[in-house]
């Protein structure tokens, strides 16, 4: 049974190891409904690994993850019903059209009358005219939109975006940002990773800085800025990031 929680994402002491290498160490954070958490860090900091653990794509070695009250370890199916994961690369089935992708996902999630949800989604994402096209006939941006449509079809309460703006044109970036903000306003809890700090400034309510798999800082943008600004006014997130991470790769 789903426990209603004010915290949509609860992560406690999440640890992920690859042999002797610890990719994520004792990571804890909370994300509430309507909040957008930006995951930032240098290359190899563990952002993608964290997102993949949160989405149940890979198992973690320690800690616990609760998605909308469902323990991902104990009830992965229940947790996954409430989340959507959007990888950095749009990975689609080569031989399924846009419409067939949505039909497939609808059956997986058991969405009745999915057409009534799918059509507005396709129209919102401006790919309704591509419904009978195969992925090979779509541009990268359109593929990305199809992935988003598939992810949103079951109305997830929790969303994980890994580098959501990769490969999008300026208009696509604008629309993606609007879409993320709109979903958050509708009550979704969102975690996104990106190197594009201006995106985080515009979209995120909270930020979590990772380095070598460990949390350096987290909180609202203002809180994190206050911690690293050393009393200076109007310090940019870029400057905060450089100060927090020491300006080097992990």
């Amino acid at each position: 049974m789903c426990v209603v929680s004010t915290r949509m994402i609860e992560v406690q002491a999440l640890t992920k190891r690859y042999g002797d290498f610890t990719a994520v160490r004792e990571l804890s954070f909370l994300v509430g409904p309507g909040e957008v958490l930006g995951l930032v860090g240098p290359n190899g900091a563990g952002k993608t690994t964290t997102l993949r653990c949160l989405a149940g794509v890979i198992p973690c070695n320690g800690g616990s993850i609760r998605i909308a009250g469902n323990d991902l370890g104990a009830d992965p199916v229940g947790a996954k019903r409430r989340l959507a994961f959007f990888p950095d690369e749009p990975r689609l089935f080569d031989y399924l059209t846009v419409r067939q992708h949505l039909a497939f996902v609808a059956r997986i999630y058991g969405i009745e009358n999915h057409e009534s949800v799918a059509l507005p989604l396709l129209e919102e994402l401006e790919i309704a005219d591509k419904a009978n096209k195969l992925p090979s006939e779509l541009s990268r941006g359109m593929k990305q939109k199809l992935v988003i449509a598939c992810g949103l079809l079951h109305g997830p309460q929790v969303m994980f975006f890994d580098e959501p703006l990769t490969g999008l044109d300026p208009l696509g970036i604008r629309r993606m940002k609007d879409s993320i903000i709109r979903r958050a306003r509708q009550g979704a809890a969102i975690v996104l990773s990106s190197h594009l700090l201006h995106l985080l400034e515009e979209v995120c309510s909270h930020v979590l800085i990772l380095k070598k798999g460990e949390k350096i800082a987290d909180g609202t943008l203002a809180e994190v800025a206050a911690r690293f600004s050393a009393g200076e006014p109007d310090v940019s997130l870029e400057e905060i990031f450089i100060r927090a991470t020491g300006g080097s790769e992990s």
């Binding site: 993949r52 794509v57 199916v77 996954k80 994961f85």
Partner: peptide, 13 residues
Amino acid sequence: LPISDILKTYPLS
């Protein structure tokens, strides 16, 4: 297998 990440996000055992 190359898209196992996607399959694993489905709410299925």
